[in-house]
Simulated scan of single mutants.
Amino acid sequence: MDLKLEPIVDELPAGFADLEADATADGHRQMTRLAAELTETPAIFHAAYACYLGGRLAGIGAMTDEPAPTAQPTWTMRRFYVHREFRRRQVAFSIAMALLQDAAGRVSTMTVHAGNQAAAQFWEAIGFRRVADLAWSHQRTMRDTTAGR
């Protein structure tokens, strides 16, 4: 597997148009939102990663402050999408682990909003637990970022 992670800093990664088109066709708008945010408010991102598989952009994930009020510093994983051709090939796992590693020691809790059951199962498999009555669906205490490896 020729999997390669690259940080996204100031511009959209090569191959972004294809990933955005796949996300839109799959009923998701997060790549369109990511493009706008990187242009208009890039400082909101603590980190963002592009993952390439076989030289093609396979997925993207980022993290920002959790927008809902919290009692302690909390970040959220967002703008997370894996191209349908590259699912179940460690792309999401690789991006999530890189983001968790970046957050380690900097924040006490990570959150995510799983949009469907498959996403919920993924987040639970890497150490997030389902929560109720909050603005997010899952959270993870940032004591150990090696779980799920």
Rank of each mutant, 00 (worst) to 15 (best):
Glu40Thr: 06
Leu38Ala: 07
Glu40Leu: 12
Gly15Trp: 05
Ile8Trp: 06
Arg88His: 14
Met97Arg: 15
Thr109Lys: 03
Ile126Lys: 03
Thr74Pro: 09
Thr141Phe: 10
Gly54Tyr: 10
Arg56Tyr: 15
Ser137Glu: 10
Arg130Gly: 00
Ala50Pro: 08
Glu66Arg: 05
Val91Thr: 03
Asp26Lys: 04
Leu19Asn: 09
Asp10Asn: 14
Glu20Pro: 07
Met31Thr: 01
Ile44Glu: 04
Pro67Ser: 13
Phe122Thr: 05
Pro67Val: 10
Pro69Ile: 10
Ala103Phe: 05
Glu6Gly: 02
Ala23Phe: 01
Asn116Val: 05
Phe80Ala: 11
Cys51Leu: 06
Val91Pro: 02
Ala14Ile: 14
Ala62Phe: 02
Ala98Asn: 11
Thr70Asn: 11
Ala120Glu: 12
Leu100Gln: 09
Ala120Asn: 03
Arg33Val: 01
Tyr81Pro: 12
Ile60Gln: 00
Gln30Trp: 08
Asp65Asn: 15
Arg129Gly: 06
Arg140Ala: 01
Arg106Pro: 08
Tyr81Thr: 06
Ala125Arg: 15
Gly54Asn: 07
Gly27Glu: 02
Thr109Gln: 04
Arg79Met: 00
Glu37Tyr: 15
Met77Glu: 09
His113Lys: 10
Val9Ser: 10
Ser137Gln: 08
Ala25Thr: 07
Gly127Ile: 12
Ile44Phe: 01
Glu37Val: 06
Glu20His: 06
Arg78Gln: 03
Met142Ala: 02
Phe45Asn: 00
Gly54Lys: 02
Arg130Ala: 05
Arg106His: 13
Thr145Arg: 03
Pro42Asp: 05
Gln117Asn: 11
Leu3Trp: 14
Thr24Asn: 11
His83Cys: 01
Arg79Pro: 00
Ala68Tyr: 04
Met77Gly: 11
Gln90Lys: 14
Met1Phe: 09
Ala103His: 07
Met1His: 11
Thr64Trp: 04
Ser94Pro: 05
Phe86Ile: 01
Ala48Cys: 13
Thr41Phe: 13
Ala125Pro: 02
Gln90Met: 10
Ile8Val: 15
His28Thr: 08
Gly105Cys: 01
Thr64Met: 10
Gln117Gly: 06
Ala47Glu: 12
Ile126Glu: 03
Ala68Thr: 10
Ala120Lys: 10
Glu40Gly: 02
Leu100Pro: 04
Arg29Pro: 08
Glu11Pro: 00
Tyr49Ile: 02
Arg140Cys: 04
His46Cys: 06
Ser94Ala: 15
Val82Lys: 11
Arg149Ile: 05
Ile126Asp: 03
Leu34His: 04
Arg79Asp: 06
Tyr52Glu: 09
Leu34Asp: 00
Ala50Asn: 07
Ala21Leu: 05
Gly54Ser: 06
Asp144Val: 14
Gly54Glu: 06
Asp65Glu: 14
Thr111Met: 01
Leu3Cys: 13
Tyr81Cys: 08
Ala68Val: 09
Met1Gly: 15
Ile95Phe: 14
Thr32Tyr: 00
His83Ile: 00
Ala35Leu: 02
Thr32Met: 01
Gly59His: 01
Asp26Pro: 03
Ala71Gly: 09
Trp136Val: 14
Thr32Ile: 10
Ala48Gly: 07
Ala43Gly: 04
Trp136Asp: 06
Ala98Thr: 09
Thr64Gly: 12
His83Gly: 02
Ala62Asn: 11
Ala118Met: 07
Arg56Trp: 07
Phe128Leu: 08
Met77Lys: 03
Arg87Thr: 02
Ala103Asp: 05
Ala71Ser: 07
Val9Asp: 07
Ala135Thr: 02
Met110His: 05
